[in-house]
Write a protein that binds this DNA or RNA. Structure first.
Lengths: 354, 354
DNA sequence: TTTAGCACTCATCCTTTCTGAGTGCTAAAG
DNA sequence: CTTTAGCACTCAGAAAGGATGAGTGCTAAA
């Protein structure tokens, strides 16, 4: 059954007032607030209906109404107005995103912090663990006769390096040989194809400097392993103390410690968000994780490039300013997607405002 | 004036009992606990003396005594017994430290998390911003005709790389030229010696591919800048909620938000710790920062190598288990120093238990 | 110097009372 | 049939009054 216009208007007023004040809303206050020219008695009747239908709840008999999860859901689906960010806000976000070196994990972490600061809720950001990666090429750079740099590049175009110091002398030709060997034997292999057997064979071919092969390949394996495992960053957990629903230290603590369990978070939250691209809102009991049953989560996903995705999200009480949070979050997520999609600046072209 | 043996014994008993229970300690309890064969009345007299002298405080007239900051100070300086870590604990620490790739920032971050988890207090770790660094060498690796990898190495032997994609074609000889140019013009220069003028000159010499010079040099500058700026990591802030002194949400919130101000933390804490190498304990009002006036901090410093240092520390209420925390912290700090001091494994020698 | 005894203090807990916001229901008005 | 005014009722939360008991300081005797 579709709700009457008036009921919707009232529901919306209840939700928005409660979001602001965190106090149950009474019929009298609504009579003024909702812009309806009816008396509080009429509103009381409507409120009774809405409660009956499950959109509102009463903390106790003589209190005003607060939205139920179902009420929030209707609000989010139909009643909420798209929030537009102020110029100042967009500028702030853009600045923060473009800052500094474009290292994946740092950017993601930074984005989470920013979102938390922007919304006053705890935030988290994570990257989906990449599927089977391989090494695309090896390079070895001789620094001096006792050290060299190994540079490996994956098929997802991530480049990592490591400096190796050695007790023994090492010549340029030796290093050349090793490089060729590495590039023949280990390129295009996934992590579990890099077997000890394979390494033995290559070590044999390497002659005297056989030990270096395993050294470099282990490094390559570490790189693959790290890239394939998903990372989770949380930020601003202390913000939950800002909100009156967490005045109870016990509650706050429970949520906080849940938030610091990276793995649980990733599991519970990555799944729903990675389904499609839009911003997802999970209200209270809609969350699968028990710890989040009276908590809401807003999620947005972004593209890291190369078909990979990440998720950025915000956690807060069900009484959350969904409109604002969703707007900010999707703006940041879009920003991230653009950032990772955008190729390196062409030479001679200094950075420019769009 | 030196305290009598008995007074010390009583003070110590008060401190240790209060650390455990967080409850003011009364004369009766002490009579049993302190292993003294005197009556509670005698103890009461002694307690009155200790209070007079400023080592103890009374929350209110009819309560037991709690240690004053001065009392904790005496305890820490003279009365506290060196705590030894259990084998299990040392093993846990060692395992956590040796895990994964040896990237400076990740290890430091990880160490902070571990300390927090180990002590149940919030922890932080930071690295002193390096002094004037320079680039020691540049290498450019051609990937394909439209992209190359820049590898830069600082005089502190940190190596960083970045992949550049270009719209224009690029040949091996061109890249060779660029490399030589970079290594002649920009090696050995500090960040502020890498002036625009210098870049103009080099760009001129580079001919057609002049844009690449500034691209790579900007990258190098980013690297230097990042290494020279100090980084702060905090972990386990939520642990403060475990302790009864922060049942008051307002208090907890204040401390938490202070802990998330990286810069303030770094300033307030790096200074005292970097003075010398021992473990430092700052009790309540001994802290310079106002926000920490009723909070204690335990600090230990470690060597990152190359003459640089970092600090790792723990924050908690003045009622803190100083003995345990100090022991764990200095063990971890030592572990970090060793970790960074230890050179790369020689080839052919697989990792081994010591 | 130590101890027993005793009156006194004061946070904490528990119960009781009071208050007021907000309700549901009824009956009259539109 | 819908809206409104009026009124009795409910109940959380604040305020106020005891009661409890741990712990003290002081005095006087051992």
């Amino acid at each position: 059954m579709e709700l009457s216009e008036r009921k919707k208007k009232i529901l919306r007023a209840v939700v928005e007032s409660y979001i602001q004040t965190a106090e149950p809303v009474g019929s009298k206050a609504l009579a003024q607030l909702a812009g309806l020219k009816v008396s509080s008695a009429t509103i009381r009747n409507e409120l009774a209906d809405l409660t009956e239908l499950g959109y509102l709840e009463q903390p106790h008999t003589s209190a005003g109404r607060i939205p139920s999860p179902q009420g929030y859901r209707l609000y989010v689906n139909e009643l909420m107005e798209e929030q537009r960010l102020s110029l100042e806000e967009t500028k702030q976000i853009n600045d923060a995103l473009h800052l500094k070196m474009r290292e994946l994990d740092k950017v993601i972490d930074q984005a989470g912090r920013m979102v938390s600061q922007l919304t006053n809720y705890p935030a988290f950001s994570l990257t989906e663990g990449a599927r089977r990666l391989t090494i695309k090429r090896f390079d070895l750079i001789l620094v001096d006769s006792a050290s060299f740099i190994a540079v490996v590049m994956t098929d997802s175009s991530v480049v990592k390096n490591k400096l190796f110091r050695l007790p023994a002398e090492l010549s340029e030709p030796q290093l050349q040989l090793l490089t060729t060997l590495l590039n023949t034997a280990f390129v295009g292999k996934t992590l579990d194809q890099l077997t000890p057997e394979l390494m033995h064979v290559a070590e044999h071919a390497a002659g005297s400097s056989y030990g270096l092969i395993s050294l470099v390949v282990s490094f390559a394996m570490e790189v693959l392993d790290e890239l394939e495992s998903s990372a989770v960053y949380t930020a601003g957990a202390s913000h939950i103390l800002d909100h009156p629903e967490y005045q109870d230290v016990g509650k706050a603590q429970k949520l906080m410690s849940y938030l610091s369990e990276d793995k649980a978070l990733a599991q519970a939250l990555a799944l729903p968000a990675l389904q499609d691209d839009s911003t997802k809102i999970l209200i209270g009991p809609e969350n699968v994780a028990d710890e989040l049953k009276d908590t809401s989560v807003v999620l947005a996903s972004y593209d890291i490039g190369d078909g990979m995705k990440g998720v950025i999200g915000v956690v807060g009480p069900t009484r959350m300013d969904y409109a604002k949070v969703a707007a900010k979050l999707s703006y940041v997520a879009d920003g991230l997607s653009k950032l990772f999609g955008q190729p390196e600046l062409p030479p001679g072209m200094p950075e420019k405002e769009e």
